[in-house]
């Protein structure tokens, strides 16, 4: 129940994109076409579900203060948490590469569907953001997995909705200076407002 609550919360209420502003760059660049946004959304869900638990393991058994205790008592006081950023970004880059190779080998159809979006994900702040939030909020392993997956789902929802709205807006006559980025930002603001009505929902 608690996990379900966390999932609902991170899909709707504190949506990774609309409330925490993570992954905006790819959101703005790729929400122009619906098919592309579905591909990007799926790739983010996929990668987040894998990288979040892996980063948790890294943090728990390598980086945290006293995490290296399994190596022996003399490592009890080692605190590598200042290395967090460099470790996480390396893990993410490596995982993305690995996922790409595995998908290519076992499911060429999925590989073509995700296309160029897989490698682009390394520099998507949503992925690193989820890993860092997970450390800051001290989630357990199960919570981290659910958090990763549902954050990805929230991203998917937001980017596909935005692509649909932008498709419609193409037929409207927008003020020249507001075309493109400007109107998209304002629309995102309205979308974020719409998502805010979910706040306070508890299961």
């Amino acid at each position: 129940m608690e996990l379900l609550n966390l999932a609902i919360n991170s899909i709707f209420v504190s949506n990774i994109l609309l409330a925490s502003f993570l992954g905006m760059c790819s959101f703005l660049a790729i929400s122009k076409r619906i098919s592309a946004s579905i591909g990007m959304g799926a790739a983010v869900v996929f990668v987040l579900t894998i990288t979040a638990p892996v980063s948790w393991l890294m943090n728990e058994y390598i980086l945290k203060e006293g995490a290296l205790v399994w190596l022996g008592d003399s490592f009890k006081n080692v605190d590598l948490s200042f290395m967090t950023y460099i470790f996480f970004i390396a893990v993410i880059a490596a995982m993305v590469q690995l996922v790409e190779m595995i998908v290519e080998k076992f499911s060429p159809a999925l590989y073509t569907a995700l296309g160029i979006f897989l490698p682009l994900i390394t520099v998507n702040c949503a992925i690193l953001g989820v890993a860092l939030f997970m450390v800051e909020r001290k989630y357990t392993f199960a919570q981290t997995t659910v958090f990763g997956f549902s954050s990805g789902l929230g991203y998917f929802l937001a980017i596909v909705t935005m692509a649909a709205i932008r498709k419609k807006i193409r037929y409207s006559n927008v003020v020249p200076a507001l075309r493109g980025l400007g109107i998209t930002m304002i629309l995102t603001g309205l979308l974020a407002m719409a998502f805010m009505i979910f706040s306070g929902i508890q299961l």
Partner: peptide, 9 residues
């Protein structure tokens, strides 16, 4: 959050 988007827009 919406305030940030709209101000930047």
């Amino acid at each position: 959050a919406p305030g940030a988007f709209i101000i930047l827009g």
